[in-house]
Structure formats: C-alpha cells, structure tokens
C-alpha cells in the first residue's frame, strides 16, 4: 500500500472518530437533563422510579468511558436506539428512507456533474463571448439563491399553479400502483426535487470546470498539440478535457457534502421521504436520538464517499500515487 493511501486512511479515520465522539458527547454535555434527549419532553410526567429505570436502561449511570464503549459498539452494529416520536427502532426508519435519498442524490450527482462539466468546458472554450458571459451570469444568480427557495418556486409554478406534477412525496399514497405504472408515478414525483437539486449543485462543478479548462487551454502542451497538427476537436476532448477534469474531481469530492446537505433541504421542501426529510422531522419533534442518527448517517456517507473518491484519484492523475508509491 502506498504512503498516499495510508495517509488518507489515517486522515479519514481521525475525521470519523471526531464525528462519532462529538455525537456521543453532545447530549451528555449539553445543559439540561440528558434524559430529555433520550425520552423526549415526556420526562416531566415520569415518576422518579421511571426516570431511574430509563437512565439505567440507557446506561447513563455508568462511568463515561463505559458509556462510550457501548456507544461505539452500538454504532458499529447499527443499533441506533429507539425513536420515541415515531415509536420505531431507528434502524428501521433509516432503512425505509435511505433508498429514496440514494435515488435522488445519486441521480443528482451524475446529472449535475455531467452538466457542470459540459457547460464549464463550453464556457471556457468560448471565453469572453456572449455565450460565456450569459452562462456566468446565469450561474452567478443561481448560486445567490437560497436552495430551498428554488425548490419552493418550482413547486409553486409546476405543481401549485400549473398542476403538472405532484406537490410532495415520492409516490402517490394508497395507490397500489405496480410495475410500469409505479415507475411512472415515482418518476413524476422525482422530477421537481431532482431539478431543484441539480440547479443548486451544478454551479460548483461549472465554475471549477471553467476555471480549470481556462488554465489547461493556456498550457504549453495544448499549443504543442496544435503544432502537431491535432484537430481542434481532438485537442478539446483528448488533450484538454482530461487534464481539466483533475481539479473537478477534487471539487467533486468536496461538493459531495454540499450536495447531500442540499438534499436535506430539498427533501424537506418536497416532503420527499429520504434521510434528509427524516432529519427535518426529527428536528421539528426534537426527537434527539433520531437527530443524532440521521446526522451520523448523512455525515458518514459523505466522508466515506470522499474517501472512495480520494482513493480513486491516483487512477486519474498519474502523478499522484506512483511517485509516492
């Protein structure tokens, strides 16, 4: 294993450790009764025996390091506890919600990246022209808008006023659609959230690609390719594109978090039953164990995705990894 890999593993190990620890300490260090974070505001109506019982069950009477040990064990075995609001084990709630987020965020990732790369490259190739200026203006305005507001406006126009698409949810409830009908139904529900999410995610990719492409086009090896008689098209796609994509890969990794955060907000707007919406619901209900669990899932998946992307980076850039390896 290369030094690069080891470094990355150590780096991400530390991040994960910090996140887990923070998540553990927060309810225990916050002012107020830690019981409230476990059992909700019903605490006030409990007898002191009941309170003792809850504390005992949760192990909150144990020394901190014992609690920490069992907490880590719980986390690694997927035992996130019980949602007092939804009266369900959290792990079940999560497994209901995760597929929807994967669908929404996964499609967004692919579409936003492709669109951002294409528009960024075109903008750079046509630098200084009307096309370039128009694209820059459009994306600048887009990035100045609050992400949830973009979703609200889309829903107002296309669902509320025009009635073309459904207002909320991931599929029509109690419809019992099956097969193809269900696919159509799910797609209809997916369009608005997906478009909103793409709109808020694409700017980052666009800006990076444009900047990176401008840099690459000024490089000597592009001039060289021209001197070699390589056709303009080939220069763009074979020589410039791949080099310009390197920084995009880095930004791509950093914007994974941004995209998933965006998903949290967008799912809330569209009442889309993903993990982000679950987090919102848990915040509204002050369902602390659920807030924590959704936080962990979202954060850890971003970090793991970053990690995977980091590990793939050497295959893109021959300079990384080999020289260290």
């Amino acid at each position: 294993m290369s030094k690069y890999m080891l470094q990355k593993i150590a780096q991400y190990g530390i991040v994960i450790f910090i996140i887990l620890t923070l998540n553990f300490l927060l309810p225990r260090l916050m002012p107020g009764n830690p019981l409230m974070y476990l059992a909700g505001e019903d605490v006030g109506f409990m007898t002191s025996e009941e309170k003792q019982q809850v504390l005992e069950d949760a192990g909150l009477n144990d020394p901190l390091y014992v609690q920490y040990g069992s907490y880590l064990k719980d986390m690694f075995t997927g035992n996130f506890g019980y949602s007092y609001q939804q009266k369900m084990p959290i792990i079940e709630l999560l497994s209901d919600r995760i597929p929807w987020t994967l669908l929404l965020a996964g499609l967004n990732l692919v579409i936003a990246t492709i669109l951002g790369v294409i528009f960024g490259a075109i903008s750079a190739w046509k630098r200084g022209t009307r096309t370039d200026v128009n694209m820059l203006t459009f994306f600048m305005f887009l990035s100045a808008m609050p992400s949830f507001w973009i979703g609200m406006i889309l829903v107002s126009i296309f669902a509320g006023t025009l009635g073309w698409l459904p207002v909320f949810g991931a599929e029509t409830g109690w419809s019992n659609y099956t097969g193809w009908e269900r696919v159509v139904d799910i797609t209809k529900h997916l369009i608005l959230p997906l478009v909103s999410l793409v709109l808020i995610s694409v700017t980052n990719v666009f800006m990076t690609m444009r900047y990176s492409m401008l840099n690459v086009l000024g490089e000597d090896y592009i001039k060289m390719a021209k001197a070699k008689g390589v056709k303009n098209r080939t220069i763009k796609y074979r020589h410039a594109m791949r080099n310009a994509l390197l920084p995009v890969a880095t930004v791509f990794m950093l914007s994974l978090g941004f995209m998933l955060s965006g998903a949290t907000v967008i799912e809330t707007v569209f009442a889309y039953p993903g993990v982000g919406r679950l987090m919102f619901e848990s915040v509204l209900a002050r369902d602390y164990p659920l807030i924590q669990a959704t936080f962990l899932i979202i954060t850890l998946s971003v970090i793991v995705a970053n990690f995977i992307a980091d590990l793939m980076y050497p295959f893109l850039d021959p300079k990384v990894g080999k020289s260290n390896g």
Partner: peptide
C-alpha cells in the same frame, strides 16, 4: 492546516442542524 482540512471535509449543514437542535 490538518484541522482546517478536517473541518472542510465535514458537511456542515447536518452538523449545524445537530448543533442548533441541541443548543
């Protein structure tokens, strides 16, 4: 700078929601 890298990797909106919910 390592700390800075750490902070930059963590997606901040979920963490903000968590913190804001607790405090």
């Amino acid at each position: 700078m390592r700390v800075v890298d750490l902070v930059l990797v963590i997606p901040f909106l979920p963490l903000m929601i968590l913190l804001a919910a607790f405090i």
